[in-house]
């Protein structure tokens, strides 16, 4: 009996040492991993304000946000029409244009092809929207994927109109 108890006590000490040791190793590893995450100064730059007062209909500008290009396009009536008249059942990634552009005149989206991260070219492609030169993905005037290898539509970042001349992205 006392033998058995002894064994149990020994096992307890070893198990407890191992368990506590493992906790410690985990606690040490976390800072070493977390240091590679975006730091405080990077996080603080997470939003950008863009002045859009000088943008003519039909034109677009590209701004840098979090190190990535963002397309801001002031669409013409025709382009809006075209985007809204598509039957969403035909789309590989069905999304309504109304959901993508809060104000139909303004389309704000990340200029990064959802295939492998190249930057698509504007006013190109078979759907009058964007065309990615890397692997031939065609996007329409709402930035939705229509043809080619890209799996999803161009991503819409979080943005808001600060006033009629300024968009705040992020």
């Amino acid at each position: 009996m006392s033998e058995k108890k002894k064994v149990e006590r020994r096992d307890f000490i070893f198990t407890a040492s191992y368990a506590l040791g493992a906790v410690g190793v985990g606690a040490v590893v976390w800072p070493l991993i977390d240091q590679m995450n975006p730091d405080r100064s990077v996080k603080a730059l997470a939003s950008t304000e863009v002045d859009i007062s000088s943008l003519e209909p039909g034109k677009s500008i590209t701004v840098l946000w979090r190190g990535k290009p963002v397309f801001i396009k002031r669409r013409t009536k025709d382009e809006i029409e075209e985007a809204r008249n598509v039957d969403i059942k035909d789309l590989p990634h069905p999304e309504k244009d109304e959901d993508r552009a809060k104000d139909p005149e303004w389309l704000v989206m990340l200029g990064i092809c959802t295939h492998l991260g190249c930057v698509p070219l504007g006013d190109k492609g078979e759907y009058n929207g964007w065309f990615c030169p890397c692997h031939g993905s065609h996007y329409d005037t709402s930035g939705r994927i229509r043809k080619g290898p890209a799996p999803t539509n161009l991503e819409i970042p979080k943005y808001e109109f600060v006033n009629s001349n300024t968009i705040k992205i992020g």
Binding site: P31, L32, D34, Q35, N37, D39, R40, S41, V42
Partner: peptide
């Protein structure tokens, strides 16, 4: 100073 202030756990490392 950037390491000491902004990097996650930079001060510790």
């Amino acid at each position: 100073e950037h390491i000491m202030r902004d990097v996650n756990y930079g001060w510790l490392i």
